[in-house]
């Protein structure tokens, strides 16, 4: 089958892959680039588990035609931690018991990161809005919202 070459920046690394035409970005990231952090929950754009940042803004990688990311920058949870140091969002989710099965967590973290990058001091409603496209079946959402607010506060040097 004919394959198309594709290059992009994945978590600071120049990445080149060959893709089957019509592939979605999620498959390309996972099986082509070997970044397994985005997850497939529906391939319909309805669960948010595959959320990645493209040029800094959240996208659903399952609904992104791979060819459209040529030359663009993609960030995933795989690049969220700075080396061994967890991102404050990761730290807050961990300490706040804000994950159970963990399957939605990577996508949720990307949605939250996109929020905090633009809105360092979000209100509770803004946090809720930011994760509104990301489903969680385990937690009832409240611990997740709390964790994001905690992370925001810590990043701003406040106590939540």
């Amino acid at each position: 089958m004919a394959r198309t070459p594709l290059t992009f920046t994945l978590n600071d690394a120049e990445t080149g892959v060959f893709v089957v035409p019509g592939s979605n970005l999620l498959d390309v990231l996972r099986r082509g680039a070997g970044d397994l952090t985005p997850k497939q929950g529906c391939a319909q754009g309805t669960c948010g588990s595959c959320t990645v940042l493209i040029d800094g803004v959240p996208h659903l990688s399952c609904l992104t035609l791979a060819e459209t990311v040529e030359g663009r920058r993609i960030d995933t949870t795989g690049g969220l931690a700075g080396g061994p140091d967890l991102h404050p969002l990761q730290q807050a989710v961990m300490e706040g018991f804000a994950a159970q099965c963990g399957f939605c967590t990577a996508g949720m973290l990307m949605a939250a990161k996109a929020l905090l990058d633009r809105t360092p001091n979000p209100t509770r409603d803004e946090v809720i809005e930011a994760i509104s496209g990301n489903l969680c079946r385990c937690t009832g959402y409240e611990p997740i919202v709390d964790a994001i607010l905690t992370a925001s506060a810590r990043m701003q040097g406040r106590t939540a």
């Binding site: 319909q44 809720i128 809005e129 509104s132 959402y141 919202v145």
Partner: peptide, 14 residues
């Protein structure tokens, strides 16, 4: 057939 029509309360309904 999807999470848009299989309804579950969202984070705005905590």
């Amino acid at each position: 057939q999807d999470f848009n029509t299989y309804l579950m309360p969202g984070p705005g309904q905590i």
